[in-house]
């Protein structure tokens, strides 16, 4: 059977990527604007740390949604946005970690080390961050050649671990105040996105 392939040639338009860049930078611009106009509330440091964490998680969901969307809507062109979104996940994770280190810890290395040691939710966040850094560092074409496609793909499956660690980080942070509504929301989205992969993999194997 030949599947009809819907035309989505606009996704290949040269302006689509710059537009995506703009969209992905918009949350940061909004936060910078909020900081300069002092409209982030009574505790702007906390608001920044949390908003940057929220956006890291949101973009992670978006990055993980690209493959399911590509397959379900039969739009191969979507694949060309996956690395860009993934790198923005890391970009927001870097800002999130920086905001924590500067605003919460006053850049005191000893205090940060102490915090990582004594607070499990921070440790889990650091682990997720390190994995993201590894993925970002090997995100360019040449790295695929160096590592070999198989090993590279293996390594980049670590993004599923990042998803798990991120939601655990968020859950642990919120459980201090018994506040799980958003954790359940993001957790469900991630579960659907990862669950779909499992289901898809199983379907393909059955077909072989």
């Amino acid at each position: 059977m030949v599947l009809s392939r819907p035309s989505r040639s606009w996704l290949l338009h040269p302006l689509v990527k710059p537009l995506l860049w703009g969209l992905l930078l918009a949350p940061l611009c909004w936060l910078v604007y909020g900081t300069t106009t002092n409209t982030l509330g009574a505790n702007p440091a906390e608001a920044l740390i949390r908003a940057l964490g929220d956006w890291t998680l949101r973009l992670l969901c978006l990055a993980l949604a690209i493959t399911p969307l590509r397959v379900l809507t039969r739009t191969p062109a979507l694949a060309r946005f996956r690395r860009l979104v993934g790198l923005f996940v890391f970009f927001y994770a870097v800002l999130h970690a920086l905001a924590y280190a500067v605003f919460d810890m006053g850049l005191e290395a000893a205090d940060i080390a102490d915090d990582v040691r004594t607070r499990p939710f921070i440790l889990v966040g650091v682990l997720a961050w390190v994995l993201l850094a590894l993925l970002a560092a090997t995100s360019f074409q040449q790295a695929i050649r160096w590592l070999g496609a198989g090993r590279w793909q293996m390594l980049h499956r670590a993004v599923y671990a990042v998803a798990g660690l991120s939601i655990l980080h968020f859950f642990w942070m919120r459980s201090g105040k018994n506040n799980f509504a958003e954790v359940i929301l993001y957790g469900s989205v991630l579960l659907i996105l990862l669950g779909w992969r499992g289901w898809h993999y199983w379907q393909q194997r059955r077909r072989l």
Binding site: A42, N43, A45, E46, V102, F103, D104, G106, R119, M173
Partner: peptide, 23 residues
Amino acid sequence: VPHPRWSQATERRIGEGGLFAKK
């Protein structure tokens, strides 16, 4: 006596000294 999830050694005084104020 730290809270199991965070230290109680320092605090941020709301409205004091701007974003980069030391706790």
